[in-house]
């Protein structure tokens, strides 16, 4: 079997996996590494539930070939928490009622994470633009935007951001 031997860093941990060339990063995360915090749905980069951060950028893991991630840094929702402490984004989602069914939330948070890393002080409109690729059917987005705005302020205050 011609499989691609990959050395992949996920949430700071190195993994050596062997995958068929046409398999997506999502396949590897969920099926090989059993990191099911990253969700699966449309498989055509329309819904955003599979969003992870690769080399600091949000990507739809369903349309990214795993083989293309050789040597790259992947962060998933499981890598966001610092031990038992939630990341400020996660905390803000809890506090602001931004979570309903929760299925879009890992992708939503990872989308927001990459965005806030580049835009520490966004406007509400910019937040809406940033998460437009991640569909949520439960919340109508309002409390998600509230949560991201609150998290951005907290992150700036914590001095983690310029």
């Amino acid at each position: 079997m011609t499989e691609v031997q990959l050395d992949l860093t996920v949430n700071g941990r190195r993994h050596r996996v062997s995958v068929p060339a046409h398999h997506s990063l999502l396949d590897v995360l969920r099926d090989e590494l059993e990191l099911t915090g990253t969700k699966t749905n449309c498989l055509e980069a329309e819904c955003g539930v599979c969003t992870v951060v690769v080399d600091g950028k949000s990507v739809a893991s369903c349309t990214m070939l795993a083989a293309q991630c050789q040597g790259r840094e992947v962060v998933t929702i499981e890598g966001l928490q610092d031990g038992g402490d939630l990341h400020p984004l996660q905390e803000a989602f809890v506090e602001h009622g931004a979570v309903q069914c929760g299925y879009c939330i890992p992708g939503m948070i990872m989308t927001a994470k990459a965005f806030l890393d580049e835009n520490p002080r966004p406007t509400r409109e910019a937040v809406r633009e940033a998460i437009a690729g991640t569909l949520c059917r439960c919340t109508g987005y309002q409390k998600i935007v509230d949560a991201i705005m609150a998290a951005s302020q907290r992150l700036v205050q914590q001095g983690e951001r310029p």
Binding site: A45, G48, T51, K57, S58, V59, A60, T63, M64, T111, A114, F115, A130, I131, A132, G133, T134
Partner: peptide
């Protein structure tokens, strides 16, 4: 074009 996730790649 698409969302950030698509435009990033």
């Amino acid at each position: 074009i698409g969302g950030h996730q698509v435009r990033n790649v």
